[in-house]
Simulated assay, not measured.
Amino acid sequence: MTSLSDLPIRDDLRGREPYGAPQLDVPVALNTNENPYPPSERLVKALGEAVMDVAGALNRYPDRDAVALRDGLAAFLNADTPGAGLTGRHVWAANGSNEIIQQILQAFGGHGRTALGFEPSYSMHPIITGVTGTRWVNAFRDEDFGLEPEAAVRAVREHRPDVVFLTSPNNPTGTALPLAAIEAVLDAAPGMVVVDEAYAEFRREGTPSALTLLDGHPRLIVTRTMSKAFAMAGTRLGYLAADPAVIDALLLVRLPYHLSAVTQAVARTALEHSVELLGSVGELRRERDAIVGWLRGEGHRVADSDANFVLFGTFPDRRRVWQGMLDRGVLIREVGPPEWLRVSVGTPAEMDAFKTALKAAEAGTEESK
């Protein structure tokens, strides 16, 4: 049998492992930050009808530039952030925010260029940076997982990156960035600044979006997704807002007809039902804040979260705790800084199961010492 090592793959790919959270059949899966509430029967019917409408023309290529979808996304962002003043020309869409990130790095990164981020953060940023032939620099976050503007500016001035990644709310910590930190980086960065807002809809009241900074900052890109708050992870739809010139640059690297007609139809339908789909956001915020309070009451360190997940610790042997919870049917994520674990916010019943499993796993850990 031929093995991977026998193939003439790129040297920089040798020894790497494919990215991905465990996909296990468990009663309670709280490891991938999904919205736990499925579409209603009414929405399922609307989605089915939307797919049927395009099914008869699947012998033809889809709208290559997804014009109607981009117009809809712009309207949604304008409602989310009044005064943003976006049009379809300011928006681009692709197969999940990971393809958005890949296209950004294909256009603005590459051989001889550098991307900089502040870890712990979204692990796909350095992975996609590497596979696009771009050099990755980790400038690190503060002890509390925040980012002081002065420290961020020092890192940018030292490394002069072509692309800077800022994640707000940050994954896996849930930490949101103040606009002052983003503005400071924008003023110092010689290249593009990407603010990854995959969890923006979950941010606490009064936490602004980087969308408010787009006007006057042509090198700023704000990325979003339908996978989280929209409860559309299976649709694979990510998008960004930026100056129209940025979209022109991405057109140079995007594959033709990269968004299927079915994906576009489903995403447009989701936007038409955005009030319903986002109706669970308030409940998930309350459940998040409740689990933060409970974990702190149990003596754990917990990062402040503006997302739909919580990073908590610390555990001298987090693998043992993670496995102990899995043995009890609850799957969370072993990710981020050593000694920390991350739990996605689920339904009240799922969070009750999480509490029970965590206490049992910790008790088991103590007994094994």
Rank of each mutant, 00 (worst) to 15 (best):
G329A: 07
N31Y: 10
L259D: 04
R113P: 03
A241L: 02
F145G: 01
V330M: 06
P120A: 13
L58V: 09
G297R: 01
A74H: 01
Q323A: 11
A349W: 10
H273C: 04
P149G: 14
M226E: 04
R70S: 00
M1Q: 12
A357G: 04
R157V: 12
A189R: 00
G216Q: 08
R154D: 14
L358I: 04
S97R: 09
V91F: 03
A50W: 06
N31Q: 12
A188T: 03
P22A: 14
L284K: 03
N170P: 04
D187C: 04
I247G: 00
R288Q: 04
A151K: 12
A349M: 09
G146P: 02
D65N: 09
T132Y: 03
R224E: 06
F165N: 06
L240A: 02
R320M: 12
Y239W: 08
D11G: 13
R286A: 15
S123A: 12
D306A: 08
T223Q: 08
V302T: 07
T356G: 06
E17P: 01
K355H: 04
H258W: 10
E49L: 07
G117P: 00
T173K: 06
T134D: 05
T132I: 09
S168V: 00
P172V: 14
A249V: 09
V153Q: 07
R10A: 15
G191Q: 06
V246P: 02
R60W: 11
A50Y: 06
T167V: 14
D11A: 15
M325T: 03
D63W: 10
E158F: 15
I247H: 04
G56F: 01
S121R: 05
A55R: 00
L77C: 14
F354C: 15
A66D: 08
L58A: 12
W92R: 05
N170M: 10
G83N: 12
Y199I: 05
V310T: 10
L147F: 05
N78K: 09
A66T: 03
S305I: 02
L284N: 02
A353D: 12
V266E: 10
L259I: 13
N308D: 07
R301A: 15
N35M: 06
A184T: 08
S168Q: 01
L30A: 13
G279F: 05
E334G: 04
M351S: 12
G336N: 08
D142P: 05
N31W: 09
N98A: 11
G364T: 10
A93Q: 00
P27R: 09
P178Y: 03
A68W: 07
H258R: 15
V253R: 09
A189V: 01
G117Y: 03
A94F: 10
P39V: 13
E350V: 09
F309W: 08
P8S: 13
F315A: 08
W340E: 12
S274A: 15
I182T: 06
E158G: 13
P149L: 12
A21Y: 08
S97M: 07
